[in-house]
Design a protein around this nucleic acid. Structure first.
Length: 774
DNA sequence: ATGATGATATTTTTT
DNA sequence: ATATCATCAT
């Protein structure tokens, strides 16, 4: 095939020269430096289609790796529609998703039990905390978070405890021991954390040449998105997989590297060109997203960073409006300004969903939310607690995990006394002590401690015979008082019962039975408060989720339960429901990466907040803050606002900060200062003074915004029709008073709404809560 | 076993 | 200001 015919291909029609070069590049390593909004996903997707169509490469020989499930889903969708075939043979997934799949397929060679479980950060922290206690390490001196951070960092560097050199350093030495203990507990419990997934699968390849060879030969093309976010183990993972002959296409942007604080190394981009010298570098510098003013301003800011690969984004698009900088006299004023601007946008025919308010840290959302509520403007905050992270759901999942694997200490620990069944701290401490001393799982420990209650010679299912039973050395009665031993025995029997009864049940029935038999459902039903009701709803929702769950890939040996549990840990996906409603989008700068909006507000542009005080000292960190600023600015398509407050309430204290240095880094020609700098010190008396909708602008600044006081409570209509509750609607609750709907989920009698009352935010079941629409 | 109290620390977060 | 968490008292 000649170069000429290639260039005529319709696959390339819609692409610019650089994109075309990347998509149709010869079969070799390629580095694509893709600026913000330069169409990198497009290039990746087209490249895959190109390989399939022109290089005769079957899609099952291509591996595409992303960082988030969302990106993976998006890519899969686009590939499928482009190739016009639902291709299950194409491997698209996150690093973790793919590595996990490998471990499931080769669990034996990876040294894992078949029913190994993935634990999330929360479970991991609990586990570490328990180990610290076991080791008698003072939490004051050795915080669990720090220990967990250490372990994860080591794993990300590819290190096992034995490989860590402590050189007499107490900090390293101690944490090394904790790591060691942690590893043992995970191994006996068949538990695998996120970092472990990657490290294990890497070690699998490293130690099993035949397996490695199989995958090396299978995947002759590997494409990686957001390459600047790879950590060391991920890079090594890619390198070993590529081997000598597979071709890598990596796509990344060093200027958008904002996760170095959790191990990502943008240097890998440069490293890549050294490790794969034949790699061709292609720069995507044409931006299709922002106006030239926004782009030039962003370029100006990022040019202050010393360590860059170098790249200059440009656009053929319009110059656009200048960037608006607004100085609020305090944080509320700043928020009110933003709301006014959004109202103006909406009045001019814009949609709320087209606007995004970005901030550096989550705490900043509160003031913004209040202003939005005040203006009755629906909004959505990204990044809250996700469904599968809620306590009651984690409880239920722990039961399921324990059923799947009795030796899962993490699960055992969580639910052995939930709901309360008389197994208190004293009992548990004795049990942990025992388990620790004899290096057995909590389950085994419990069985051994309870042993005399079973007849001699009788073995309970789930009991491992290989461990020597120390029961002859220590009389169990001395370990636990009879009452405690009975309670414990009842628990063991309960779990065994659930296991045997549900053995042949479908996942959903099994879950339902477990919820009832375990007493979890009853436990939460007894809590007649709204919270309790919500929890019951959530548990029912869990059953619903198990109903709908279909295993992604069907292995002959795959257990639906195990599959489901992994799915839950790895893809605790957000509920996308609210995406369809027209809401202002609120999120941190970090979570805005990869998104775009016509109108963007970067709020809290103050020294100390952004760049954050904790990151302003070291140059490296400051540069990361600057990249964050760059990411934020380049989210904007047509309008960009930078706002700050001269005074702000932070951690209970009033703070005065200078405007962010990043504002100064933007050339003045791109900036217009919003002039409405408030003379309204006491706006209660002030009439309209700005050019726009001022009745809204005036009352919000009153020092005590009090929802209760400002609205008359007549006209309360007692329509309980649930369809009457869109976000932003004001409602009254007999106990909590007036509030505003923030969110809703479910429908019919299961419908729940989230309401902000003066006393706080609550989830209410519409059917039970006597809400009146105002 | 539960609730009240006090101490403490509050970037960013996916998997 | 607020949320989380351990400790203590009930």
């Amino acid at each position: 095939m000649t170069a000429q015919t290639l260039l005529d291909d319709p696959l390339l029609d819609s692409l610019n020269d650089a994109q075309r070069a990347a998509v149709s590049a010869p079969c070799d390593h390629i580095l694509v430096l893709a600026g913000a909004g330069s169409g990198k996903t497009r290039v990746l997707v087209h490249r895959i289609a190109w390989l399939a169509a022109h290089e005769g490469i079957s899609v099952d020989r291509i591996l595409a790796v992303t960082f988030t499930n969302k990106a993976a889903a998006q890519m899969r969708g686009r590939i499928e529609s482009m190739l016009n075939t639902p291709s299950q043979r194409l491997w698209v997934g996150t690093f973790h998703g793919i590595a996990h799949r490998l471990l499931r397929l080769h669990w034996q060679q990876a040294g894992l039990p078949q029913s190994f479980q993935v634990i999330d950060g929360d479970d991991q922290l609990r586990l570490v905390r328990r180990i610290l206690k076991n080791m008698n390490l003072d939490e004051e001196r050795w915080p669990a978070k720090q220990a967990m951070w250490f372990i994860n960092a080591q794993k990300e560097e590819g290190l096992r405890p034995q490989q860590i050199k402590s050189e007499g350093d107490l900090f390293t030495e101690t944490h090394k021991r904790v790591y060691q203990q942690y590893e043992e507990v995970c191994q006996t419990g068949g538990l695998v954390d996120f970092a472990e997934i990657l490290l294990r699968s890497y070690e699998l390849w490293e130690t099993q040449p035949d397996i490695l060879q199989h995958y090396q030969q299978r995947f002759i093309h590997i494409l990686v998105d957001e390459f600047q976010d790879t950590n060391r183990i991920q890079y090594r993972w890619l390198k070993i997989l590529a081997g000598a002959s597979s071709k890598l296409m990596i796509v990344g942007d060093d200027d958008q590297s904002i996760y170095s604080w959790r191990g990502a190394k943008a240097e890998h981009i440069r490293r890549f060109t050294q490790d794969f010298p034949s790699a061709q570098t292609i720069r995507l510098e044409q931006n299709y997203r922002s106006t030239s003013v926004i782009l030039d301003a962003a370029n100006a800011v990022i040019s202050n960073n010393a360590q860059r690969l170098g790249k200059n984004l440009w656009t053929q698009g319009k110059k656009g409006e200048p960037i608006t900088v607004y100085a609020g006299f305090n944080d509320r004023d700043e928020a009110a300004f933003i709301v006014r601007q959004i109202q103006q946008w909406v009045n001019q025919g814009g949609e709320r969903r087209e606007t995004a308010i970005l901030y550096r840290s989550n705490a900043q959302s509160r003031v913004l939310e209040e202003a939005l509520l005040d203006a009755n403007m629906p909004y959505r905050v990204y990044g809250g607690l996700r469904f599968f992270e809620r306590a009651e759901i984690k409880d239920a999942l722990a039961y399921l995990r324990l059923i799947a694997n009795y030796h899962d200490d993490s699960a055992f620990d969580r639910i052995v006394n939930t709901p309360a069944r008389g197994i208190g701290d004293a009992t548990l401490n004795a049990l942990r002590e025992y388990a620790h001393t004899y290096s057995v799982s909590l389950w085994q420990a419990a069985q051994q401690v309870c042993e005399p209650l079973t007849l001699p010679g009788q073995t309970l299912p789930g009991q491992t015979q290989t461990q020597e039973t120390p029961a002859n050395q220590i009389l169990p009665k001395q370990i636990l008082p009879t009452r405690a031993a009975n309670a414990l025995q009842n628990f063991l029997t309960l779990i065994l019962d659930i296991t045997s009864v549900t053995q042949n049940m479908a996942l959903a029935e099994q879950t339902q039975y477990m919820l009832e038999k375990s007493g979890l459902l009853t436990h939460y039903r007894q809590d007649r408060s709204e919270k309790g009701l919500a929890r019951v709803e959530n548990l029912e929702e869990l059953v619903n989720a198990t109903h709908q769950f279909t295993p992604e890939f069907k292995d002959a040996h795959a257990q639906p339960l195990t599959e489901f549990l992994s799915h839950v840990s790895l893809e605790s996906g957000e509920l996308e429901a609210a995406e369809f409603s027209d809401c202002v989008q609120l999120m941190t700068l970090h979570s805005a990466k990869g998104l775009e909006f016509p109108v963007v507000f970067l709020s809290g542009m103050e020294e100390g907040l952004f760049p954050h005080a904790m990151s302003a000292q070291k140059l490296q960190q400051l540069e990361e803050e600057r990249r964050l600023c760059y990411v934020g600015m380049t989210r904007a398509m047509t309008k960009l606002f930078l706002t700050y407050a001269e005074a702000r309430r932070l951690n209970g204290r009033e703070m005065w900060q200078r405007p962010s240095r990043f504002i100064e880094e933007i050339p003045e020609e791109f900036i217009t200062k919003a002039s409405i700098k408030t003379k309204i010190q006491r706006p209660v008396y002030t009439g309209s003074r700005s050019t726009h909708a001022s009745h809204n602008a005036s009352h919000h600044v009153s020092h005590n915004t009090n929802y209760k006081a400002s609205y008359p409570d007549n006209n309360a209509n007692h329509n309980s029709d649930h369809e009457q509750l869109p976000r932003g609607r004001r409602v009254r609750h007999p106990h909590f008073g007036e509030g505003v709907i923030l969110d809703a989920e479910g429908s019919g009698e299961h419908m729940r709404v989230q309401v902000r009352f003066a006393s706080g935010v609550k989830w209410l079941v519409v059917n039970y809560a006597k809400l009146t629409v105002l």
